[in-house]
Amino acid sequence: MAHVAHKLSIFRGLVTFKSNQQKIWGVLIFLSIVTIIEVVLGIIKPESLMSSFLHMKIINWIFIVLTIVKAYYIAWDFMHLRDEKSGLTGSIVLPLVILIPYLAFILLVEGNYIYDVMFEGFVSWNF
């Protein structure tokens, strides 16, 4: 395979690297920083982020958003999705982006409902 053209800009063109190898190290540093933020938040658990937003603690929303950011950079830069044709990218990413949140939504709502039933029912489950 002769050389494939790599797109060397990340963060919407904010940072442009000179070579593909340099970009890899750049992405590694970025992923490490995100992981360190996650771990530090997980250990400190700041009181201000413990309040609830849409049935979940704010800190958990932050974790999930940071995870998706990490997943994006792993897929786009390590797995070279940035260099693929948009048709291929779309056929890979769209089914996942549509199906997974849908599945998560229905099952989490159902889990919450079962919790309510068991909590408010006449039968004691904790004896």
Partner: peptide, 11 residues
Amino acid sequence: VAYGFSRFKNI
């Protein structure tokens, strides 16, 4: 997601 379901059920 199954893990999330069980967790929400025993939140």
